[in-house]
């Protein structure tokens, strides 16, 4: 009896947690299907009305924003991973003086508050002629993406047994061949999880995107979303905002659910030893 009561209590508690976790997103979906006066009534199972989605997709900027976000995130992930794999090899598999300092520097950089470099980076971006272009975001996102990918890849590469490297050396592998023919294929799953996390971080970034881009056509999704406003002061565009939120979030959630295991391993690789 006591055991049954305990199981019931635990299950109820779990239901509460799940409800609390999911409800805001559920409410966003529900609201995105309401337009006009329906939006302002509290109705948990409304009729499906696609007006908001139609408005959003016919307004060119939103699609452009999504494309911008995708371009930036894919570029950031690709560049970070290429840099990270050679760096991780050096940091995880080679013994050299200064290794500890580099690792500490990378760890420090990963804790770096973005606001600190805003004014300095603004100058660099102007100087490189990248202001108000997607390039400014690709460059500035390296500030969080690179330390993170290098750190996580280093801890992944360390888990690969040292004898494999010895065997490859005996087989005549040069360092370059070692990285690309032995470690690269072996690290494919790790690259996938690290890349996914870096992708999500780039997709969601707000501060730099808000500061380094100006025109609607180079904005990324988070900025576009934050700046959606009604045509008049009294119009509440929440229906459209919720529709945009759903469009932006659903692919992420699908990605995250499909690659659940990879993401958890990527999240924990840097933190749990």
């Amino acid at each position: 009896m006591k055991r049954l009561a305990k199981t019931v209590a635990l299950t109820l508690l779990k239901i509460v947690v799940v409800f609390y976790t999911i409800f805001p997103f559920y409410w966003a979906i529900v609201s995105s299907f309401k337009s006009g006066a329906a939006l302002f009534s509290v109705d948990f199972f409304p009729a499906i009305d696609l007006t908001n989605y139609r408005d959003l997709l016919t307004n060119g900027n939103f699609l452009r924003n999504i494309l911008n976000s995708a371009i930036v995130a894919v570029s950031v992930v690709t560049l970070s991973l290429i840099f990270a794999i050679t760096s991780a090899y050096a940091l995880g598999k080679m013994k050299f003086r200064g290794r500890g300092i580099v690792l500490a520097g990378i760890l420090g950089a990963s804790m770096f508050p973005q606001i600190v470099v805003l004014s300095g980076l603004f100058g660099t971006i102007r100087w490189l002629g990248l202001y108000n272009s997607l390039g400014s975001l690709v460059l500035s996102y390296m500030i969080f993406s690179l330390p993170f990918t290098v750190w996580v890849m280093t801890s992944f590469i360390r888990q690969i047994p040292a004898e494999l490297e010895d065997a490859a050396r005996m087989d005549g592998c040069s360092t370059w061949a070692m990285i690309w023919q032995i470690y690269f294929p072996l690290l494919a799953p790790a690259l996938a999880s690290t890349g996914l996390l870096a992708f999500i971080a780039s997709w969601n970034e707000f501060l730099f995107a808000l500061t380094f881009t100006l025109s609607d056509t180079v904005r990324t999704v988070p900025v576009g979303l934050a700046l959606i406003s009604g045509s008049s002061r009294f119009e509440l565009p929440f229906g459209t905002i919720m529709a945009a939120s759903v469009i932006v979030t659903v692919p992420l959630i699908l990605l995250v659910l499909i690659f659940q295991r990879r993401i958890v391993s990527g999240l924990t690789a840097g933190a749990v030893k």
Partner: peptide
Amino acid sequence: AMVFQSYALY
């Protein structure tokens, strides 16, 4: 040529 303890096969 060397044979390793863990075999170290790719």
